[in-house]
């Protein structure tokens, strides 16, 4: 445990050296302020300019979902870039043969960051959401988006040989977020084409609280993590 905490402190030191730590602390709050006050303000301007009664307000729940995803996604992106940097410099190989071990390294990088990002996104959505959230739904969605971001981080790390590819893969993995939008814009069976994206079920869960969405969101998320873990383990063993 001591080794894990030391390794996590090392991560914090690196992030604070880059200035990323301050961003991770303040950007979720700034984003929250923008979503909570900026979006309704923009809605006023746009509806007036377009002479419509509502444009953005129909999608306030979607903005809340983005808010719940931003924090874990930012944490996972910053941590993945640090991990790729450590991989390039062969630091990971050295760390995993110390008492930290490979699992300890993963916990210190992805595990603790995920727990923190889960707690931060809980707070951010609680204070800045545009729609009403029940406590159960709030915990469920924030937990699922945090778990999803572990999968995304592992995917970026596994599929990149260096930081250039890291950025390209990070952008590619952003497609996963598309699933959040689908239930709001596509109706009928065509929307289930996006059923392989955990985000699709997360969004559906907030619109229709049916048992199918719960079962599918867990099944698809576990399948994603397991699928990515094979390549991740292989890369960590190199």
């Amino acid at each position: 445990m001591k080794a894990i905490l030391t390794s996590f402190r090392m991560l914090l030191k690196q992030l604070s050296k880059d200035g990323m730590l301050i961003v991770l602390m303040f950007v979720p709050i700034l984003a929250g302020f923008f979503f909570r006050f900026g979006i309704p303000y923009l809605e006023g301007i746009i509806t007036q300019a377009m002479a419509q009664t509502s444009v953005l307000s129909d999608y306030y729940l979607l903005f809340d979902l983005f808010l719940a995803t931003i924090t874990p996604y930012m944490f996972c992106f910053a941590v993945t870039m640090t991990m790729l940097d450590e991989y390039d410099k062969h630091i990971i190989g050295h760390l995993t043969i110390t008492p930290l071990t490979k699992n300890g390294y993963i916990i210190s990088r992805l595990g603790i960051s995920t727990i923190i990002s889960f707690l931060v996104s809980l707070l951010v959505v609680t204070f800045f959401s545009l729609t009403e959230w029940t406590l159960g739904k709030l915990i469920c969605v924030c937990f699922l988006t945090s778990v999803l971001c572990i999968g995304v981080a592992m995917f970026i790390f596994t599929k990149s040989r260096n930081k250039v590819e890291g950025i390209a893969v990070a952008k590619l993995s952003g497609i996963v977020m598309l699933g959040l939008i689908v239930p709001f814009f596509l109706s009928g069976n065509v929307q289930f084409l996006f059923g392989l994206f955990p985000t699709f079920w997360i969004a559906r869960l907030t619109i229709e609280t049916d048992i199918l969405s719960y079962v599918m969101v867990i099944t698809v998320s576990v399948a994603w993590i397991m699928g990515v873990k094979i390549g991740f383990d292989r890369k960590m063993a190199q």
């Binding site: 992030l15 050296k17 880059d18 200035g19 961003v23 870039m81 940097d85 950025i167």
Partner: peptide, 8 residues
Amino acid sequence: DTLNKFFL
């Protein structure tokens, strides 16, 4: 000098 700094 680092990617994180560049993104910021």
